[in-house]
Write a protein that binds this DNA or RNA. Structure first.
Lengths: 197, 197
DNA sequence: ATCCTTTATGTAAATCCTGACATATGATAC
DNA sequence: GTATCATATGTCAGGATTTACATAAAGGAT
């Protein structure tokens, strides 16, 4: 079973979904930390059904094309349960911006600052989006969040991971930009280029 | 040009290295956020040489097998420089533990706590390792770190990213474990299983 | 009528990456 | 002697993922 398979089972354990529905969920990152395209999802669903982890039924629709709605089986739920608490074998983190950072000494400082300010913004926007969802959950799903064995708490926990990740990333980008820009730890405050028309 | 190609150029821009040397560097994560196996590195070196980004010379050794030492070309350095400040197109983050978290409501709380405590420890150990390097750099490379256009600062910046990442991850793991365990935000403090002989 | 969009489901080619297979030199240990 | 380890360089099969190709039904706009 692939990790994508478990991602799909994780969604199907909460509600029955079509391949198209799954694709929509996967775009917005399942639990905020997994994603896949439909070209990967449809074949995976076929494999899952082949393995007995899911079944499907065709739902006829009048106002749109018919669809296949998938349901998790007992076998699928069992597989998912036993996977959940198994230690994931650590896989390497690959982050292109950090890799670029390793060679940023070759770049023009102005361009480097621009890059990190842009990235800081990207992560702050993502953070703001997550914080909105968090505020909504904390007010509208208070009771469910009190029980750590609820799907809502599980979703909330992944959201907290997303928040921490984005906040840390944004802060780091700001620290790099400020350092190169000479505001905090940097040295050259005034390179004097293109100044005073 | 692939991202791996730029990772290799990033290393070769600092020093001439053999494929074997590169493999060693890549194991420990270039800039703490990229990695590759030798089976990927050797073909990539051939492609880089084919594209004129690197050249190699055979260095004969007496106490060990001969080796090919690679050197970056002006063209390679130019390609690397122009890549460094280009905005990376955002690629999806995939994290298996967070994906598992999304389905943790299906698991036994005890097993979930165990998982997150283990992961917390893993990230704290990695953090401690990074902090050691940081302390060494801050005391032994003080001058170079004052210039943000030095390779040392670039390395240091990626190290700071690693530190922030691991710290945040460990904290999150602790928060999840504590929540499920009932220490901070959790509810059920005593499930009473296997208690008192 | 025709075009575009959304819903809906698939396949195929190419790329990236891992794990296994393969070979050779020289040092050290037994 | 030979087994093993570190150095050193490669190839190959397969899995995971992306991008592009492909089709179709139904709705709304022009």
């Amino acid at each position: 079973m692939t990790t994508l398979g478990y991602a799909i089972l994780g969604l199907l354990s909460r509600e029955d979904l079509s391949g198209y529905d799954l694709t929509q969920r996967m775009k917005g990152r399942v639990g905020y930390f997994w994603s896949a395209r439909h070209s990967q999802i449809y074949p995976e669903l076929a494999r899952l059904e082949d393995g007995g982890y899911v079944t499907h039924s065709v739902v006829e629709q009048t106002e749109r094309p018919d669809k296949k709605v998938y349901e998790i089986t007992d076998e699928g739920l069992g597989a998912l349960k036993s996977w959940v608490t198994r230690s994931p074998e650590p896989r390497p983190i690959r982050d292109e911006l950090t890799l670029k950072t390793y060679s940023m000494w070759l770049a023009e400082p102005e361009e480097a600052v621009k890059l990190f300010r842009e990235e800081e913004l990207r992560h702050e926007e993502q953070l703001a989006h997550y914080e909105e969802i968090r505020a909504w959950m904390e007010s509208e799903r208070r009771e469910e969040l009190g029980r750590t064995d609820s799907p809502e708490f599980a979703t909330y926990a992944t959201l907290r991971r997303g928040i921490g990740y984005e906040r840390e990333y944004a802060e780091w980008c700001r620290w790099v930009a400020d350092s190169v820009d000479g505001r905090k730890a940097g040295e050259k405050k005034d390179r004097g280029e293109k100044r005073g028309g």
